[in-house]
Every structure is written in structure tokens, then in C-alpha cells.
């Protein structure tokens, strides 16, 4: 049986207490919410923190407030099941509900939180392996070594950003609230991330992601398409989130296209977005935007399926997501 390494378990009852504990423990402590990402990594000895600070007993993190008109705030401790099923979220931001519902399995969605999914560790099939496996092949720079096994000679880690919900959050224009010893700050979701497989979060280790703020819906049409081998369990090996606004005559007035699981952070396809603005979303326009969206994607061979396949699927999935958001018929939903 794979087991957790020993640790001290701290269960603060309030946010203030949690912030204080993290400040006090420094780098010896890690934050845990649902545990669905951290515990497997701890069992494989990617992490052996001396202490865990659990967010589960903090009531302030479990709220869902607001409306489609005013925007929504979601506490970071809200489970993925709730995000996927809450009528308020599902009606106003269907792509977010879909993305949350596409994470792993029902059991894990009951345990895992939206905050945890936004902070989910980057993944690489040279990294998400047991201690014995990694020792045999030689430790990589993300844990214990100094080389990258997927791109030898690389100075940086190429572990893959594997959150389903983050691309949707970026496309929605959401922001996140972080609270730490220095106080509280609110940043756009995209500013939470950095294109580095190791230091993939700009959040400080002693900061807690407390809530997500979604802007008013205001006509936003969204979709999320996820590439994976199976309909359950699997992390995205490509995720495409789109958010569009269409004028009454169908002209696109706002567009965001965000790719997940192609680099170490979500990637916004701004060039493709520009191709949509001011256009009526015909098949041809969508196709051109999809090709442009896929261009910056640089997947490497460190997930399921081949990198060439993932790269090739980027425009296909983008086109399908755009068509779905635009309400064009003909493509099945993911």
C-alpha cells in the first residue's frame, strides 16, 4: 500500500488563523484543501511537508454569492461537484460548470475544491511517478534533480498546466483573491500563473487563494472542450476555453480563447481573438481563428497521447469550442 509520509496536521478554524499558521511555519508547511492532488504526490514523495495546513474547517471559503447580473464570487473551498452542479453557476457560466464536471471522477470532485483545481500542480509523465521510478530514470529538476527529461538541455521545467477550470476562468475574465501575511490582493486569474513547470504560480507559498470573482455574464457565451483518452479520470492533455460576445447581428464584439495543457500555464490566443472581433462567426472565420489559436501551442511529449496529435487537435478543438459558443450547429459538444 502506498502511504503518506508523517506530518503535523493543522486545522485552523478561520482564515486569519490559517494565514498566521502559514506565516509561522514558513516553507515547512503546505496548504491542503481537498487533498486529491497533494496526497498522491505526497505518497509518491514529490512532497514531504513537515506540516499541513488544512483549509477544510474554514467556513469563509465555502460561499457562492452574487448573480449572473452582478457577477459571482465563489469561495476557494467550494467543491468541484458544487461548481459543476450549482444552478447559479451552471446557468450563468455553463463552461465553468462543464469544466469542473470534467475533472477526474465524481468521487474526486466531491473531495477536490475549485481553489485546489486552480492551483493544481503541473504534470509530467516523468514527474508523476513513484520515488523508485524517478530514482531509476534519474530525478528531474522538478523534484530532486537538475535536468529536464522531456527536453534535455532545457534550463526550465516543462511540466504541463493541467487545470480544467483555469482556462475557463481566464476566458471569463475572472480574478482571484489572495490573502497572506502582507494582506489581501486581487489579481486577474491569468496573473496567478507563470510559464514555468516548477514555479507555475505567482501566489506566494504563505498566501491562501480565498475566492474567485466572476464578472457579470453580460451576454458572454462560453464553451470548454477537453481532450483526454477517457471520459473520466484523465487530466486534460488539451483544454480549450472560449468566451464570446456577439452583437445582435451576430458580429463578434469580444472574444477570449484560452488553451490549457499545452504549456506550463494557460495560454491566451490573442492573435486568434483579434481575427474574430468585428466579424460574423462563419465557419471560415472560426477556422482561421482556430488555426491562429493553435499556433503558439507548444506541447511536448510528456502527457498521454503524442505531442503531434495534441498540437493537431488544438485547432480542431478550438474550432469546435468556438462553434459551440457561437451557437453554430453541426458539432457535438465535448
Amino acid at each position: 500500500m502506498l502511504r503518506l509520509p508523517p506530518f503535523e496536521f493543522l486545522a485552523p478554524r478561520s482564515l486569519a488563523e490559517a494565514v498566521a499558521l502559514l506565516a509561522e511555519r514558513g516553507s515547512a508547511a503546505m496548504i491542503v484543501a481537498g487533498g486529491t492532488d497533494l496526497y498522491p504526490n505526497m505518497k509518491r514523495r514529490q512532497f514531504e511537508p513537515a506540516a499541513l495546513v488544512s483549509l477544510r474547517s474554514i467556513p469563509e471559503l465555502r460561499h457562492v454569492e452574487g448573480t449572473a447580473q452582478t457577477g459571482l464570487t465563489i469561495g476557494s473551498g467550494v467543491t468541484l461537484t458544487q461548481v459543476s452542479q450549482q444552478p447559479l453557476i451552471a446557468n450563468a457560466y455553463p463552461a465553468l460548470a462543464h469544466a469542473a464536471g470534467a475533472v477526474s471522477t465524481a468521487q474526486l470532485r466531491n473531495m477536490g475544491t475549485i481553489g485546489g483545481n486552480l492551483c493544481v500542480d503541473t504534470r509530467c509523465n516523468y514527474y508523476n511517478q513513484t520515488y523508485h521510478w524517478r530514482k531509476s530514470i534519474g530525478f528531474c529538476m522538478k523534484k530532486g534533480g537538475d535536468v529536464c527529461l522531456v527536453a534535455s538541455g532545457s534550463e526550465r521545467c516543462w511540466a504541463v498546466f493541467s487545470s480544467d477550470t483555469a482556462p475557463v476562468m481566464v476566458a471569463l475574465g475572472a480574478s482571484v483573491c489572495l490573502e497572506g501575511p502582507q494582506g489581501k490582493r486581487v489579481i486577474p486569474v491569468e496573473a496567478l500563473y507563470r510559464d514555468d513547470g516548477i514555479a507555475y504560480l505567482t501566489k506566494q507559498p504563505d498566501e491562501i487563494l480565498t475566492e474567485i470573482r466572476l464578472p457579470p455574464v453580460d451576454g458572454l457565451r462560453t464553451a470548454y472542450w477537453k481532450l483526454r483518452r477517457r471520459g473520466a479520470f484523465d487530466f486534460p492533455i488539451l483544454g480549450v476555453a472560449v468566451a464570446l460576445k456577439l452583437a445582435e447581428d451576430g458580429t463578434c464584439t469580444a472574444a477570449r480563447i484560452v488553451l490549457g495543457a499545452v504549456e506550463s500555464s494557460p495560454v491566451e490566443a490573442q492573435a486568434a481573438e483579434a481575427l474574430l472581433i468585428g466579424q460574423k462567426l462563419t465557419r471560415e472565420v472560426i477556422e482561421a481563428a482556430a488555426q491562429a489559436a493553435a499556433r503558439p501551442a507548444r506541447p511536448l511529449d510528456n502527457t498521454d497521447m503524442s505531442l503531434s496529435y495534441r498540437k493537431r487537435m488544438a485547432p480542431v478543438y478550438t474550432a469546435r469550442a468556438l462553434a459551440q459558443a457561437a451557437g453554430l450547429n453541426g458539432d457535438q459538444a465535448a
Binding site: 509523465n125 508523476n128 511517478q129 530514470i137 483518452r229 477517457r230 471520459g231 473520466a232 498521454d304
Partner: peptide, 25 residues
């Protein structure tokens, strides 16, 4: 989908997540 495949002289996917077996879906 099922494959016992190897890379750099060792098993590529020795886990239930990475060795793909069909679910109900």
C-alpha cells in the same frame, strides 16, 4: 487503448491513471 509501453528503458505508465483501461463511458 491499453498499452504496456516503455520509454528510456522503463515502463512508461505503471499506474491506473496512465495505463488506460476503459471506464463505463
Amino acid at each position: 487503448m491499453e498499452e504496456q509501453s516503455f520509454r528510456r528503458q522503463q515502463h512508461k505508465s505503471p499506474s491506473m491513471l496512465d495505463y488506460k483501461s476503459p471506464t463505463t463511458l
